[in-house]
């Protein structure tokens, strides 16, 4: 078995525009996902929007602290799940059940240190 991080990307503007109805629908989707894959779930969180993000970049010895997300993209990281799966195919099939209506998902294996 191996651990995979499922990163959830979405368009924050579309989320805002969706209002309470979209929020409720998404929550329902995540609840259903959590129930269906309880066996595989090892963790997960939703993130506050990128307006709350702070980036730290290094220039030589200096750490520059700036407002905003690390990469400005239309679809921003909005949350993640940590799941256990026997291989990539199983991780992808779990990921397909994550609600991500205005964006998509990235599936990455977690590095193992022996």
């Amino acid at each position: 078995m191996a651990e995979y991080l499922i990163l959830i990307y979405g368009d924050e503007k579309a989320h805002e525009a969706g209002g309470q109805a979209l929020w409720d629908e998404l929550m329902q989707g995540h609840n259903a996902f959590g129930e269906k894959h309880a066996q595989s779930l090892r963790g997960g969180n939703a993130l506050q929007p990128t307006t709350t993000a702070t980036s730290v970049r290094f220039q030589g010895d200096r750490a520059n602290v700036t407002d905003g997300p690390f990469a400005e993209t239309k679809e921003a990281l909005g949350g993640y799940y940590l799941v256990e799966a026997k291989d990539l195919d199983e991780a992808i099939s779990i990921a397909k059940d994550v609600p991500a209506p205005h964006g998509g998902l990235e599936v990455r294996p977690v590095m193992v240190f022996d």
């Binding site: 191996a2 026997k86 291989d87 990539l88 195919d89 990455r108 294996p109």
Partner: peptide, 10 residues
């Protein structure tokens, strides 16, 4: 190897 793409007929 790293992402564990299986050696299997789907």
């Amino acid at each position: 190897g790293d992402a564990r793409i299986p050696y299997r007929v789907p």
